Amino acid sequence: MKLLENPQLDALNSALCIQEENCQIVGRLESYSCKMAGTDKKLFKALNHEPGVSPSDLQALSPPQSMMSHSPGAYYSRSFSSDNEEQPPLCDVISRKTLYYLIATLNASFHPDYDFSNAKSHEFSKEPSFQWVMNTVSSNLYAAVGETYNTLKMQLWTAMDAEIAVSDCDIYSYNPDLESDPYGEEGNIWSFNYFFYNKKLKRILFFSCRAQSSAAASDSGVQDLDDDNYEAYDMDGFDE
């Protein structure tokens, strides 16, 4: 996976580093080409080494975690069979090749601190719609930083659409157990990892964000966001 340069996303990444009194927000947007490099080819072969296994084989995904907090009636309609209410919920599936792209994106984004090569399909979910994802992200960020998010959200979603054409994307999320979660340390309030996969463009836009309590961030030695290592956020830096 090759990281693609995008000054607009770089500006947003600075803007998504926000220090509030009670919490610290650290978010980033990264655009990747799905073209395989040398290490990517090794991973792809490793994930498809078993006899009879094909990159087009389908594997089951887990339901989106955001849906699990709603009542069953709030689930999107294709999750249930209308013919027999006693049948188990249908689940989304993913091809081995697409699963490889998601894993390779995680490896590229969190390198060298984490290795996700052994991640399984049930640690991922397919999101029902872009609107659902946008509402979830907006709810989390507005609750954490309020009007700061309101001044940012138009540029955020416009830049994402310009980079990946969200209406043409399948959207996935990574929802690991606590042991595998790169944001699983004490003091983490919430986090999300979304993949916007545009098959036509052969590109993935990765949107990762977490909220950590300010006390935990200080105890763990994380630098304050007003440190010189962080660029000041200026809305004038965005194109109208």
Rank of each mutant, 00 (worst) to 15 (best):
S173F: 05
M36A: 12
F80E: 05
P63W: 06
Y230C: 10
K97F: 08
T39L: 10
C169Q: 03
S71Y: 12
S138C: 12
A108D: 02
V222W: 11
A216N: 02
F196T: 07
T98A: 07
K202Y: 03
G221H: 01
I94W: 03
E185F: 12
V145C: 14
L12I: 00
Y172C: 06
V145I: 14
R96M: 01
Y76L: 13
D234G: 02
D83A: 12
G221E: 04
E86Q: 14
D228R: 10
P72C: 06
S62V: 03
F207T: 00
R96W: 02
Y75R: 09
S213I: 05
D10K: 13
C169R: 02
D236E: 13
D92L: 00
V222M: 15
D219A: 14
A108K: 11
D115M: 04
D161I: 03
W132E: 13
I25L: 12
I94Q: 05
E186N: 11
D83P: 01
S139I: 05
F80Q: 05
K2Y: 09
W157N: 08
Q24C: 08
A217Q: 02
I94E: 01
K200C: 09
M36Y: 13
L47E: 04
Q59N: 12
Y233T: 15
T105K: 05
D226I: 08
L141Y: 09
W132H: 13
D40I: 02
V145H: 06
L106W: 03
S66M: 12
C209K: 06
L225A: 02
L3K: 15
A60S: 12
M235E: 15
V166P: 00
P89G: 04
N150H: 10
V26E: 11
A144I: 03
N48W: 00
Y230E: 00
S77H: 10
F116V: 01
K45E: 11
Q8L: 10
Q212E: 15
W132I: 06
L43R: 06
S191R: 13
P128I: 13
S218K: 14
S81K: 00
L201I: 05
R96G: 15
M154C: 10
C17N: 13
H70S: 15
Q131G: 11
Y197I: 04
Y174P: 01
K41L: 12
E147H: 11
Q155V: 09
Q155D: 15
A159R: 08
C169Y: 02
M67D: 14
E163Q: 11
F44Q: 00
D219E: 14
D10N: 11
T151V: 10
P176T: 07
P51M: 04
A37H: 13
Y32I: 05
E163G: 01
F124E: 00
D57T: 06
M154R: 13
D181N: 15
R203H: 10
P88C: 00
V133L: 09
H70R: 15
E30I: 06
P89H: 07
P128R: 10
I171K: 03
M134H: 10
V93H: 10
Q19Y: 05
V133C: 09
M160I: 05
A143I: 07
S191C: 11
Y142W: 07
Q59G: 07
F80I: 09
E86F: 11
F195M: 02
S79K: 08
N175H: 09
